[in-house]
């Protein structure tokens, strides 16, 4: 378990993390979402004990990070941003070095090495120098060093950044498989990843928490939550009629794809009403479906412009959280 209570961090006169509070439970994958420079990496560095927070308390596995840094580091695996590694070392030697540094000896070390090499499919490159590897393999070596001691807590800074779709899928599967018995925090700005691997998400902007919840809960903040979309050749008069329905907030029309999206007023359930309306007007419809909400839109709204409505959303989010979450 990881808990951060009101942590802040300043660099020079620039506050990078501001009064951040959150908890990640065992068996949970918590996603850090936010634009570049939002404070995700700094927060991760504080959890791993690399940086001390200026104020606030961080507990990892029931241990205070500042009071017992070594004990905390022992139970944490960390994939730093960009996943470096010593380029001139061979994969096996590098992993053995990390294993030794993490206190693995003899047969335990050998077993750990064999496990991560198998887990991350590194047999083929085990004797290659890290600098000669492709980006995908380098990232896998980075992940391998992070899990060689089978840590209770995993901190992964943009684990799929720069990987091709297949590699992304592999890494996500790996994370999901490991999640059961571990606490995992990962940062990303790829929104599809959130739905794919995260149980819960916190959105950070300018070092502040702007929203938290399950991916599904966050989608509810989208104006597209419960929106009805379909493809059809639809006369503009009918479109106008559709727009004037009381339950409809707005209608978006994508000319090239002939795709229409009907946005409900205040997240109302309008699917039945819309399909009924379309049948009434003899509109031939393809791919009629209800949207769950668009995370990218929520993300942009929450992190794009820092204004008063952001704070409002936080308040709303917190209220939802108190009810629906812990």
């Amino acid at each position: 378990m990881i808990s951060c209570y009101r942590i802040s961090k300043r660099f020079h006169d620039h506050t990078v993390v501001r009064d951040l509070t959150f908890v990640a439970q065992t068996g949970e994958v918590l996603g850090f979402l936010g634009p570049n420079g939002a404070g995700k990496t700094t927060t991760m560095k504080m959890i791993t004990g690399y940086l001390p927070p200026d104020t606030g308390e961080i507990e990892v596995c029931g241990l205070n990070v500042q009071a017992q840094p070594l004990a905390v580091k022992r139970c944490v695996g960390y994939l730093p941003e960009g996943a470096p590694g010593y380029g001139e070392m061979r994969v096996w030697d590098f992993l053995r070095f990390i294993g030794q540094m993490r206190g693995l000896r003899g047969s335990a070390l050998q077993a750990g090495l064999e496990r991560v090499v198998w887990l991350l499919d590194l047999e083929k490159v085990a004797t290659q120098r890290i600098e000669t590897l492709s980006k995908g393999f380098k990232r896998r070596v980075g992940l391998a060093q992070a899990v060689i001691h089978d840590p209770q807590v995993l901190i992964l800074d943009e684990p799929t950044d720069g990987l091709d779709p297949n590699q992304k899928q592999q890494v996500r599967e790996l994370i999901t498989n490991m999640a059961q018995h571990k606490t995992i925090i990962l940062s990303t700005h790829i929104l599809e990843e959130v739905n794919a691997v995260c149980d819960r998400v916190i959105i950070i902007a300018n070092g502040q928490l702007v929203a938290r919840g399950t991916p599904h809960q966050l989608e509810m903040y989208s104006r597209y939550h419960r929106a009805v979309s379909f493809e059809a050749d639809i006369p503009f008069t009918v479109l106008d009629q559709l727009k004037s329905l009381p339950c409809v907030l707005d209608v978006e029309y994508h000319a090239r794809r002939k795709q229409i999206t009907v946005i409900p007023t205040q997240g109302l359930y309008i699917f039945d009403e819309i399909s009924h309306f379309l049948r009434q007007h003899d509109v031939v419809v393809r791919r009629l479906r209800m949207e769950a909400g668009r995370l990218d839109e929520v993300f942009r709204n929450l992190t794009g412009s820092q204004s008063t409505d952001v704070n409002q959303v936080v308040d709303e989010t917190s209220r939802v959280n108190l009810g629906a979450l812990r």
Binding site: T48, P84, I98, Q145
Partner: peptide
């Protein structure tokens, strides 16, 4: 320069 300093200083070694 390589960023390995983070890796090194988050190992459980003083």
């Amino acid at each position: 320069q390589t960023g390995n300093i983070e890796l090194l200083l988050t190992l459980p070694v003083p």
